[in-house]
């Protein structure tokens, strides 16, 4: 993967596939340290599954025998001197289940990748999961201050207009791009 926005899309897709109804994606940049965090209320994982997660030969899917999402993220984070932390509560054990993945990167490290097109990643997530509520937040000490909450949009649109209709997606793209242009 060539930029961080693709990693974010890939990792957040795990939350979608875990059946989450609420997913929060945050990016915080401060003094050369970038923290990416995704929190969901999906089915979660047991301690045993979390432990196996960074092994590329562990996957729950049946279409292939490898799972590279988390190993890719971990490799990128660690090669910049950062790391990945995963906290999860399985629905088998907890009523308030879900997963939080936190990745830190030293964004000034030579092995870090560009941020890429974050707006396109958010649009892609909403396009694929119009019924999930996404909260997106990106702040940086260089003046970026972007916030988007699909629950607020849903409240205005009502239940009969899906968030992934083209008109709405186009609005959200502009809404995010305008906020990025403000900095």
């Amino acid at each position: 993967m060539t930029d961080l926005s693709l990693y974010i899309l890939d990792i957040t897709m795990n939350s979608v596939r875990a059946g989450a109804k609420n997913i929060s994606v945050t990016l915080e940049e401060e003094k050369g340290l970038l923290t990416f965090k995704v929190t969901d209320n999906g089915c979660g994982m047991t301690a045993d599954q979390v432990e196996k997660l960074s092994n590329p030969f562990f996957t729950t899917r049946t279409t292939r025998k490898v799972g590279l999402g988390i190993p890719f993220l971990r490799m990128l984070a660690e090669q910049t001197g950062g790391g990945v932390d995963i906290a999860s509560r399985s629905e088998k054990e907890y009523a308030d289940h879900g997963t939080t993945v936190t990745a830190t990167f030293h964004s000034d490290h030579i092995d870090f990748v560009p941020l890429g097109d974050l707006v396109e990643t958010i649009i892609t997530l909403i396009q694929g999961s119009p019924d999930v509520d996404f909260l997106y937040r990106h702040i940086s000490d260089k003046g970026v201050d972007v916030r988007m909450d699909t629950a607020e949009m849903r409240a205005i649109l009502g239940d009969d207009i899906p968030l992934n209709s083209f008109e709405v997606l186009s609005f959200i793209r502009g809404f995010l791009e305008d906020q990025y242009a403000q900095k």
Binding site: I156, L157, V168, F175
Partner: peptide, 10 residues
């Protein structure tokens, strides 16, 4: 762009 535009889209 503001969220108010969504009402028009609706």
């Amino acid at each position: 762009k503001t969220l108010a535009e969504l009402a028009a889209i609706r």
